[in-house]
Amino acid sequence: MWPPQHHSPTCVVILFSIHFVLKAEKLFKKQGISHDVIPVPREISSDCGMAVEFPCREIEKVSELLASADIRIAGLYRRDGRDSFQVISRS
C-alpha cells in the first residue's frame, strides 16, 4: 500500500545522504519511534534518495534525537495527503 497508511498525521524528514537516513533509522529503532524509510517524495525534491516518515506527534523527540547525533536536517515536511506536503523547515 502506498503511501504507508498511518492513523495519525505523519511528517517526512529529508537528510543529506543515505548514511544519515540509516543513522536516523537506527536511532528511531533504538528509541522505539515508529517510522518508515521511504523514497524522497517527488513533490518535495527530485532527489533519488531516501527519507524517513514518522508520526508528527514525535516531531520534538525526533528533532532532539537528530540534533544530539549531529544529523543535519535538509528539510522537514508535514504530509497533507497522498501527494501533498507542507514545509515545516528547510535548510
Binding site: 543529506f16 545522504s17 543515505i18 525534491s45 527530485s46 532527489d47 533519488c48 534518495g49
Partner: peptide
C-alpha cells in the same frame, strides 16, 4: 552518489 541527484555538482559532505 545517489544523493543530490538534481545537481551536476559533486556533493560536499
Amino acid at each position: 552518489t545517489g544523493s543530490n541527484s538534481e545537481t551536476e555538482v559533486q556533493p560536499d559532505f
